[in-house]
Computed example of a mutant assay.
Amino acid sequence: MMLDLYAASCEGQDVCLSSLCLASSVAPSTAMRKINDLITRGHIRRMPDPVDGRRTNVSLSPRTFRFIDDAIAEVIEEAKVVAGAPPDGDDSHGPAGVS
């Protein structure tokens, strides 16, 4: 659920509560319990849909978005190291690895 919300936020898309429940691949009651827990903990925000008052949208809190964004950046940097590429900001090898 959190990665779905992260991806939607990166793409500037709204996510309605019912869609998030369906995407979770668990029973709706289980999904709602988890969503309510994440709301209580401050990881997810719930707000009315500005276009359709019958719907409720959910999104990551700014703090949780930054946490996930930083974690993904760390994984990408680690993957570069494992693959033998220099980490971002390492210009010691010059262009195309030429010293």
Rank of each mutant, 00 (worst) to 15 (best):
Thr30Met: 10
Thr30Leu: 00
Thr30Cys: 04
Ala31Phe: 07
Met32His: 07
Met32Asn: 04
Met32Ala: 08
Met32Gln: 14
Arg33Asn: 12
Arg33Tyr: 04
Lys34Glu: 12
Lys34Val: 12
Ile35Glu: 02
Ile35Lys: 03
Ile35Ser: 03
Ile35Trp: 03
Asp37Phe: 15
Leu38Cys: 08
Leu38Asp: 11
Leu38Pro: 01
Ile39Arg: 06
Ile39Glu: 08
Ile39Ala: 02
Ile39Val: 11
Ile39Asp: 02
Thr40Ala: 15
Thr40Glu: 11
Thr40Cys: 11
Arg41Ser: 09
Gly42Trp: 12
Gly42Ala: 09
Gly42Ile: 14
Gly42Lys: 08
His43Arg: 01
His43Val: 01
His43Gly: 01
His43Asp: 00
Arg45Leu: 12
Arg45Glu: 15
Arg46Val: 00
Arg46His: 04
Arg46Asn: 14
Met47Ser: 15
Met47Trp: 06
Met47Phe: 14
Met47Asn: 00
Pro48Arg: 06
Pro48Gly: 03
Pro48His: 01
Asp49Arg: 09
Asp49Trp: 02
Asp49Cys: 08
Asp49Gln: 05
Asp49Thr: 08
Pro50Met: 05
Pro50Thr: 06
Pro50Lys: 10
Pro50Arg: 10
Val51Lys: 03
Val51Ser: 07
Val51Ala: 12
Val51Trp: 11
Val51Met: 04
Asp52Trp: 08
Asp52Thr: 07
Asp52Ile: 13
Gly53Thr: 06
Gly53Met: 09
Arg55His: 10
Arg55Glu: 03
Arg55Lys: 12
Thr56Ile: 11
Asn57Gln: 00
Asn57Cys: 02
Asn57Gly: 00
Asn57Arg: 00
Asn57Asp: 07
Val58Ser: 02
Val58Gln: 01
Val58Tyr: 04
Ser59Ile: 04
Ser59Arg: 13
Leu60Val: 07
Leu60Tyr: 13
Leu60Met: 11
Ser61Gly: 10
Ser61Ile: 09
Ser61Tyr: 03
Ser61Val: 09
Ser61Glu: 10
Pro62Thr: 12
Pro62Cys: 06
Pro62His: 07
Pro62Trp: 03
Arg63Asn: 08
Thr64Tyr: 14
Thr64Ala: 05
Phe65Glu: 06
Arg66Val: 09
Arg66Tyr: 00
Arg66Gly: 03
Arg66His: 09
Arg66Thr: 05
Arg66Leu: 14
Phe67Arg: 12
Phe67Thr: 12
Phe67Met: 15
Ile68Thr: 06
Ile68Asn: 06
Ile68Cys: 08
Ile68Asp: 06
Asp69Tyr: 06
Asp70Cys: 07
Asp70Met: 13
Ala71Trp: 06
Ala71His: 08
Ile72Glu: 02
Ile72Ala: 08
Ala73Pro: 01
Ala73Trp: 01
Ala73Phe: 00
Ala73Ser: 10
Ala73Met: 01
Glu74Cys: 08
Glu74Lys: 15
Glu74His: 13
Val75Asp: 09
Ile76Met: 12
Ile76Asn: 09
Ile76Glu: 15
Glu77Ser: 12
Glu77Ile: 05
Glu77Arg: 14
Glu77Ala: 13
Glu77Asn: 08
Glu78Pro: 00
Glu78Trp: 02
Glu78Arg: 00
Glu78Ile: 00
Ala79Gly: 11
Ala79Cys: 10
Ala79Asp: 07
Ala79Tyr: 01
Ala79Leu: 14
Ala79Gln: 09
Lys80Asp: 10
Lys80Met: 10
Lys80Glu: 09
